[in-house]
Design a protein around this nucleic acid. Structure first.
Length: 630
DNA sequence: TGCCCTTGCGCG
DNA sequence: AAAGCGCGCAAGGGCA
């Protein structure tokens, strides 16, 4: 047994590190009683993870750390069968809960030990965001949070491990690098793969991590002003996210390679032309725009990027051909257009291939509180920003054998949310009569329906009027009139906006308070309150529907679960035989009264014309259904 | 060479 | 098509 004395939060702690032979499976009293319900801090150390995380080939979990109290941690070696058995019995005992700062830990113990703790995991990362909602960018990471709660030793021990031990290990293994700098990722991957599991710096860091997670739970819960039911809902959502990530998304590798190969051929030809004639890579966007400008491109009426530069993304590259380009310019433009059409395919297929596990699944992360507004975010790959323009992109994912897929999305959820929360009678009456909100705005402001759509979206997303005239191609005075008129015709929304602008944050429908940022609007700093309220509340509406669906599936014993959420849409995977029942159920769960406004959603079966269940958009699913009927 | 920031682009 | 808000990812480019 290696025993390490350390401090955390300036208090002494003890870290027990049993060695093979130290844990006696026949002992009367094991060092930890699995059946005594305990709130553990949990952390694992593993070999460096490839693109598929714990599902990467060759990945190994080296240690599992458990902190049963605020002052004692155990670091268990997974190369010792007796320690594995003890840890497994603790993890699987129903009364135990586990606080950890990343969903990698529950995944790791699932892959390594087959222990399912999804429903008993307390995610301190989520708690940290609840405690400091405006700090989603970086500050919610474990080390800064620990430092903020007076536990600086964790960050210090990590630095000692990586910059000391790992650096030395790398230099010993690669004497040829001399005194050259070592890239942090290379150094750390080598370190985590090779550090002896008896190294005291490693063991101290490992133990402190589990202790920190355990101590943070009451601290963060106390700091958080979130109502208890919000914390309860988020804890449930954490469990759902763990199961969702664990199941993963199955890739149709044949389809992926087909898309990638086609794109590769186009890219190589295009890149050669661009390099030969412009001396640039196809990825050098900024410089290419400048180059096209020097070869006759006329940007005066060209769509722009967020920063105001001419944009050449996707179809917008085609506009180049309408400009008085010289011969070289035209040649490069034609090549660049081909590149623009396939660059996304190349990027995404490469990303998916790298994230795939040996069984063909990717395991994207779902950040359940991923943004300041609490909207969810995703990564590895980001399933929430797959192209819709080419339906083949989404359809590189298929549902598991004997499973069906379907997708259900809310119709116009943001507009409904703002109408309901403001209590805007004309809008609500129009909705109740089955009318069209864009046409209503058009009639009230004496503009076209297309223009009204633009105006409605500007309000929903917090637009202030600047640029409206430009975007509609109208004189500035007319743009100003429309904006003024909008607030007069929709007095309830105007009143809500006014009231909110006086606050420094917004209270979402759950009661959760979100501090508000500001954004620049021509020089002026404008609060994004209304946008935050709508975006955050729409997220809560989706989570509510998700939860009703999960509860009802459990009650009826249906093998169905959310495959991935996409902001206003739930993609569902279910056993093939029950797809009709599940389609009816998800529609039912997403159809309800929201403060006097009817919210609804339709479900579309994701069955392609060949009879294969694969991901796509609702529109594509509808076209598939027609093709199958024909 | 490695690190950090900015830019551009996909989605809702 | 984008305006406007919210993200993740890849690449470029400046700086040490």
């Amino acid at each position: 047994m290696i025993t390490i004395q350390a401090t955390l939060g300036h208090r002494p702690v003890t870290i027990h590190c049993p060695q093979p032979g130290d844990i006696d499976p026949f002992a009367d009293a094991p060092p930890l009683d699995a059946l005594q319900p305990t709130e553990y801090g949990l952390d694992v150390e593993s070999t460096w993870m490839g693109g598929a995380g714990p599902w990467s080939p060759g990945w190994r979990c080296r240690t599992v750390q458990l902190a049963p109290t605020d002052d004692v941690a155990w670091v268990f070696r997974m190369d010792d069968p007796d320690q594995r058995d003890l840890v497994r019995s603790i993890l699987t005992a129903p009364g135990n809960t586990f606080a950890s700062h990343t969903k990698i830990d529950p995944h790791a113990v699932w892959v390594e030990l087959g222990a399912d703790i999804a429903d008993r995991t307390i995610d301190t990362h989520v708690l940290a965001i609840m405690a400091a909602p405006d700090d989603t960018k970086g500050q919610a990471k474990l080390k800064p949070v620990a430092a903020g709660y007076d536990m600086p030793e964790l960050g210090a021990s990590q630095a000692e491990l990586e910059e000391g031990v790992f650096d030395r290990l790398y230099r010993e293994a690669h004497p040829e690098i001399g005194r050259r700098a070592v890239k942090a990722a290379v150094r750390d991957s080598h370190g985590f793969n090779t550090v002896p599991v008896t190294d005291e710096t490693f063991l101290r860091y490992a133990g402190l991590d589990a202790l920190t997670a355990r101590r943070l739970v009451p601290m963060l819960a106390a700091t958080s002003q979130a109502p208890a039911h919000v914390l309860e809902t988020e804890a449930w959502l954490t469990g759902e996210a763990i199961r969702l990530e664990r199941r993963g998304c199955l890739v149709d590798l044949e389809r992926l390679e087909e898309i990638a190969a086609g794109a590769q051929v186009v890219e190589e030809a295009a890149a050669e032309v661009v390099r030969e004639h412009a001396g640039l890579n196809t990825t050098q966007n900024v410089k290419l725009v400048q180059w096209f400008g020097e070869h006759g491109a006329d940007w005066s009426n060209h769509p722009t990027t967020d920063k105001g530069a001419p944009s050449l993304a996707g179809d917008k590259a085609k506009l180049l051909l309408g400009y008085p380009l010289d011969d070289t310019g035209r040649l490069v433009a034609e090549a660049y257009i081909k590149h623009a059409a396939i660059s996304d395919k190349l990027k995404r297929t490469t990303e998916v291939r790298a994230a795939m596990d040996p069984a063909g699944f990717v395991h994207p992360t779902l950040y359940t509180v991923g943004t300041v507004t609490s909207r969810m975010a995703a990564a590895g790959p980001n399933m929430q920003n797959f192209s819709k323009k080419d339906p083949r992109m989404r359809s590189m994912f298929v549902f598991r054998p004997r499973y069906a897929g379907l997708t259900a999305d809310f119709a116009q959820i943001e507009l409904l949310v703002v109408a309901a929360l403001a209590g805007e009678r004309t809008m609500i009456n129009t909705i109740l009569e089955g009318g069209d909100l864009h046409q209503l705005t058009a009639d009230m402001l004496d503009i076209t329906r297309q223009q009204a759509k633009t105006v409605n979206f500007r309000i929903v997303y917090g637009g202030q009027g600047k640029g409206l005239a430009d975007s509609l191609g109208l004189p500035e005075a007319e743009g100003n009139r429309i904006v003024r008129e909008y607030w007069i015709k929709y007095p309830a929304i105007a009143a809500l906006n006014e009231a909110m602008m006086r606050e420094n944050g917004v209270r979402l429908i759950s009661g959760r308070y979100v501090p508000t940022g500001t954004y620049a609007n021509g020089g002026a700093k404008v609060k994004a309150n209304l946008n935050y309220l709508i975006q955050g509340s729409a997220r809560e509406v989706l989570v509510g529907a998700w939860r009703r669906f999960a509860i009802e599936c459990r009650r009826r014993g249906l093998d169905a679960q959310v495959w991935f959420p996409v902001h206003d849409e739930l993609v569902i995977e279910c056993a093939e035989g029950i797809v009709q029942e599940v389609a009816a159920l998800i529609s039912e769960c997403m159809t309800f009264d929201f403060y006097g406004v009817p919210v609804e959603a339709d479900a579309d079966l994701l069955l392609d014309p060949e009879g294969r269940w694969r991901w796509s958009t609702g529109d594509e699913a509808k076209s598939w259904a027609e093709q199958r009927a024909a």
